[in-house]
Design a binder for these strands. Structure first.
Length: 517
RNA sequence: GCGGGCGUAGCUCAGUGGUAGAGCGCCACCUUGCCAAGGUGGAUGUCGUGAGUUCGAAUCUCAUCGCCCGCUCCA
């Protein structure tokens, strides 16, 4: 995180004003890195395949689209929280409380330290669970002590509040209250139901009367435009539609740097196919995606494949693989490959009242296509690239002096800067002129960085720290001081090995292009 | 949202009621013929923000924002 800020990869959004929770800005180098990832994904997914087309959908999304998809209903459940276990329960699924006696505690005193903690909690002990008032009280106190430990004693109180220091501990009234909801597992009175909707809503129109949502996933615009893409592109099943773009979720608790953000970018494919092919294609896409990660420099052994078991998958999914990466903060999901069946086209066909079936001319078969969805988190992958690239290398020089070299070992394809260009000595005008010529030449093809400040060794190390794979140095040999043979040659210094090789200036561009694209 | 920890220069951090600090980094000049050499000079802080206590607050109190950890959540 520190390196990211210091070298301009990632800053916190709104940092000047104290920061905006769950939002991040990419600085110059971060923007390059992210751009490289997205471009590479697009090239591999759209450009180099015959069966995938791209699109770029609107972020603002009609309410009806998200009603049909289930997001408006599914994401807007009222939830109640249990103050004892912190469990969250859907308010509409909590069973009615049985008759019983309700105990309210107002706090507890630690018997050793005498410290009093105030915390109100109400527990309903059903009539069936008690033989007499005293045993119900015991059960209540036992629950209560789970919160404060065995050495605590609940505070005395009345219905209206705590009276003083502990002895008898509670107030009670017979029977459940009219609007109260209790945790069926432990009888604890739950918090008031609150809406937990993960979608961000906005208004527009002259008077702001129209509602729109910021999309919670890029997928929906693909489903909604599926028929338009099909009709306008002379394409046959199976085929996919790919999209890279921002999505938004009102995450309750953003965490782990950019890993879980409220605004994030997705790289998604919705692959439409015949129902018989869905399971097979899901496995195929998993393999395709795994080799993608290998190509960008995330080794297979750092990836874990989770075959999400029954009961934990989304309700519409017949199979889901999570592709997870070993982040420093744990093994976490980079991408989900989900077989979504015909759920999405089904709900939109019904919701919009318009047929979305596909007619196969060859088999004369009419059916609703099924969908396989490889959905990758762009920001998460950028974070994985940085984590994977980061290295602190121990060096020992000829004099035996220890040194630590910070290196980001990005694959050249992903590296924000492809090549550093240095004149060996800033005061040598000829070296500077040649270096600037080379800079001009290479700039048309790739991101380069010109530097003439300080000793050349320091410049190499600065580039190591931002992951520049190659550095070119123009020296006295370039000028022909060691004879005609070395004239117009430069040295290329490799980031990972620190080794150097000499090369004609004319050979430089093709040599680099072969490696950095 | 709950519990705990934390917030001082770009970074890492010292500073427990009395003049705002160090190392590294950064900028300029000198030096430098290939791996963070050296020298000289320089810039940078509403001590996260707001309120309170005090003659006086980075330091004490409260609130708030943000970060980290554990829960929770994450179709």
């Amino acid at each position: 995180v520190s390196l990211c800020k210091r070298r301009g990869f990632i800053f916190q959004a709104g940092e000047l004003y104290g920061g905006l929770n769950g939002c991040w800005d990419y600085g110059p180098l971060g923007a390059e890195l992210k751009r490289n990832l997205k471009d590479f994904w697009w090239r591999k997914t759209v450009q180099e395949r015959d069966d995938v087309l791209g699109m770029d959908g609107s972020i603002l999304t009609m309410e009806q689209v998200l009603v049909s998809s289930g997001h408006v209903g599914g994401f807007a459940d009222p939830m109640c929280e249990c103050p004892l276990t912190k469990q969250r329960l859907r308010a509409d699924q909590i069973p009615q409380a049985e008759p019983g006696i309700e105990y309210t505690f107002h706090g507890a005193r630690d018997l050793e330290s005498g410290k009093v903690t105030e915390k109100q909690i109400t527990i309903l002990i059903p009539n069936g669970k008690q033989e007499m008032d005293r045993s119900a009280q015991k059960i209540a106190i036992q629950y209560y002590r789970e919160l404060f430990g065995k050495n605590s004693k609940p505070t005395l109180g009345t219905k209206d509040g705590p009276l003083g220091l502990p002895d008898e501990a509670y107030t009670y009234q017979p029977g459940p209250r009219e609007n109260g909801q209790y945790n069926p597992e432990n009888g604890v009175l739950l918090s008031e139901p609150r809406m937990f909707n993960l979608m961000l809503k906005t208004n527009f129109g002259a008077t702001g009367e129209q509602i729109a949502y910021l999309r919670p996933e890029t997928a929906q615009s693909i489903f909604v435009q599926y028929k338009n893409v099909l009709d306008s592109n002379r394409i046959k099943l199976p085929f996919g539609i790919a999209q890279v773009g921002k999505s938004f979720r009102n995450e309750i608790n953003p965490r782990n740097f950019t890993f879980r953000s409220r605004e994030f970018e997705q790289m998604e494919i919705e692959y439409f196919c015949h129902p018989d092919d869905g399971m097979r294609l899901t496995d195929e896409w998993l393999e395709t995606r795994l080799s993608f990660y290998e190509e960008i420099g995330i080794p297979r052994e750092k990836l874990h494949i989770l075959d999400v078991p029954d009961g934990e998958r989304a309700f519409y999914s017949k199979r889901t693989y999570d592709i997870e990466y070993e982040f420093p903060f744990g093994i976490q999901e980079l991408e989900g490959v989900a077989y979504r069946t015909d759920y999405d086209l089904g709900v939109h066909q019904k919701g919009a009242g318009k047929p979305l079936e596909y007619f196969d001319e060859e088999t004369k078969e009419k059916f609703l296509p099924h969908v396989v969805e490889p959905s990758a988190g762009c920001d998460r992958t950028v974070l994985a690239l940085i984590c994977e690239a980061f290295d602190e290398e121990q060096l020992t020089d000829e004099k035996g002096k220890e040194d630590v070299r910070t290196v980001l070992r990005f694959k050249p394809t992903m590296a924000p800067i492809k090549v550093g260009i240095f004149p060996l000595l800033k005061k040598n005008e000829e070296q500077v002129r040649i270096a600037k010529d080379i800079q001009k030449q290479l700039q048309k093809w790739m991101t380069v960085f010109y530097d003439d400040g300080g000793a050349v060794g320091r410049r190499y190390r600065r580039q190591d720290e931002v992951g520049t794979p190659f550095c070119v140095t123009i020296d006295f040999d370039t000028l022909g001081e060691s004879g005609e043979e070395l004239k117009d040659t430069i040295t290329i210094r490799h980031r990972d090995s620190m080794a150097q090789e000499r090369m004609k200036i004319a050979a430089l561009l093709p040599w680099l292009l072969e490696r950095v694209r």
